[in-house]
Design a protein around this nucleic acid. Sequence first.
DNA 1: AGTTAAGCGAGACGGTACGTCGAGTCTTTGG
DNA 2: CCAAAGACTCGACGTACCGTCTCGCTTAACT
Lengths: 201, 201, 201, 201
Amino acid sequence: MAKQPDPARRSQRSRQAILTAARELVSEVGYAKLTIEAIAARAGVGKQTIYRWWPSKGAVILDAFLALSESGPEQDITLPDTGDLEADLRAVMRATVAEFADPDFERPIRALNTEIINDPALAALYLEKLAGPVDEAKKARLRSAQRAGQLAADADLDLALELLYAPLYQRWLLRSGPLTAQYADALVDAFLKAMRPTGPS
Amino acid sequence: MAKQPDPARRSQRSRQAILTAARELVSEVGYAKLTIEAIAARAGVGKQTIYRWWPSKGAVILDAFLALSESGPEQDITLPDTGDLEADLRAVMRATVAEFADPDFERPIRALNTEIINDPALAALYLEKLAGPVDEAKKARLRSAQRAGQLAADADLDLALELLYAPLYQRWLLRSGPLTAQYADALVDAFLKAMRPTGPS
Amino acid sequence: MAKQPDPARRSQRSRQAILTAARELVSEVGYAKLTIEAIAARAGVGKQTIYRWWPSKGAVILDAFLALSESGPEQDITLPDTGDLEADLRAVMRATVAEFADPDFERPIRALNTEIINDPALAALYLEKLAGPVDEAKKARLRSAQRAGQLAADADLDLALELLYAPLYQRWLLRSGPLTAQYADALVDAFLKAMRPTGPS
Amino acid sequence: MAKQPDPARRSQRSRQAILTAARELVSEVGYAKLTIEAIAARAGVGKQTIYRWWPSKGAVILDAFLALSESGPEQDITLPDTGDLEADLRAVMRATVAEFADPDFERPIRALNTEIINDPALAALYLEKLAGPVDEAKKARLRSAQRAGQLAADADLDLALELLYAPLYQRWLLRSGPLTAQYADALVDAFLKAMRPTGPS
DNA sequence: AGTTAAGCGAGACGGTACGTCGAGTCTTTGG
DNA sequence: CCAAAGACTCGACGTACCGTCTCGCTTAACT
């Protein structure tokens, strides 16, 4: 049985330096050219210190993102709720489109996706730690819309989220089409049509 | 100026051996552990012969798939058209779900996606050569439905395809939920609601 | 100025455990593959405890041997003196040959020599603590022979010892020839010829 | 079964660069601090090229020395033979003493000895390729002396060489005494006494 | 007896080098 | 005269130890 390192003795200084270096390097050289060696060098850390605490390069990257999220500890992620579902969704979708267009944001996210695709364990971690909370916030907004009678009360919210976001995600990932505000609006329209409450008998 | 190899003199024997070896190895060891060296060895070919004709590992993989498609050269891909759009879509979507569940199919496709995400040039090639023809067939079916008044006449077919397939694609790629026949049906339902023709008057 | 550890507080338990572990490991894996880490682990001791008390790996090994010699504390090493120099020397040389042939003896001694060759300080320590007393005993026997008129009275005893033992040592170290009783006898013969008293004028 | 590299395709340019770099580095930093990595870097060579052709660091060093000897290909090593054995031996021994005192000579030789002690295969190679020819030349001189009646005709020449050189070698290796011209002379004296022909009648 | 300061086991740390693997290039050889 | 074979340089891999550095925990000596 292999000996496990003792988390109590872990150097927080090194941990932060590694995560920061990983984030910087992913932005600078991209994920494909990212090496453990470079992270260690940039962080001023022995390679073993990385291998000791992370099982794979992908895990480091994921952790680097998690650390970002955690740093704002008050993150009760809440989406705008003005009562006008369509307006709120458009705002959110347009913002998402803009986010995906930002190169500083794009590169690390592509990196993360590359790893996640081929590593189920990492995917699970990603869904739980990063995607999960965000999705929960989105669902909360949709539930509010359901209570307001703006959305079918029996709608499957997981499927609803996919309907809304998956087309955007796919287009971005495969670069199969332009990501514009118009596109965002079109998605909201289609989503609302699909999910609108069935009219009174 | 670098010398270009002369395609006329290219050995078809080597080309086929390389593509076959690539396909086999991707199935056996997965994409992450696939190496040019292994492909060359398996194909009984010098490494240089691979580098001479393909710019990257991803290009070889892509070519390996293209070769498969081309092998049935008469493929005017056509989707079933019984006149009943809902039934036809359910059949197609259920078949797609089943396909994604087949491990022999899954590994190479994940491999391809991994490469495509990080290589725009490859993505373009993929969209043109592999996804394109299939999408065209899907759109043809939808256009037929439009003519039959089962689908909004002014619907954006690109967006329509995304609405239908992207949720499935995302769920498969990120392993974020089960891929079942029920799920396929639910997607078809949502799609039809979103895309149904706006009532008369 | 670095703080010196206080020998009075030194743990004898740890010291013995380290020396024993060092001796065992040298026998088991040989000197080249011997590591401080392994010694510490085997001895159930922190690495620092070794670094605190010994300046180098070679010093630990040397100490391990010294400890062995010291354990028989009455060691007034004395060589047999029957009055018959030739017979006495043959016995001693044959015993030495046999000693060198014992694998349990050979490995540690080779280890020690490896270190000594490249570390003058260690060599000095070795000569003083280990070789010195033994050489003194040998010289005592030769002096006795000089008094008995069996050896040139003006012979340089350091050189005499070298003449007798160095060929054996070299042959063993470089494995340049067989170590047999015959060889031991031949060395004694040559030695006696070289060192016999010059005849009366 | 592992594939063997093909010596015919070996790059002589790389081989020479490696041997030269090894020789230089052993002189500069000593054997203990010599690393394969440094040799490769200095030689402008990939590490693999070293590992491909040599089984160990010691083998590289040995080869580096062999290459030196081979470079003067006509070397019928011959020792001076003026007819005066004592004078000739004194000259040779004094020269040897001087050689051992030269630091540029000392470091590599110590390096070589360190390796040889712990590696029987290397030792055999050393004896055959480096020590062998030199010893043969020395024996030739002694045979000449035997023919001239200056040495016992039945003397074992291997033992003779050891008697003459081993004390010097041991004193140098263990730094157990000064290496002077006087010492060289004393060794010659002792040697001649031990090996002189037994008187007539 | 209680305090305190050392040595101690443990083991994480920044490093260096290891020996291996594969990438992509260059050279030799054989069909 | 192309392409197989494979040796080459390069760089990263993941591992093993180095020697240093905290950590708590004994354990002895000195209040």
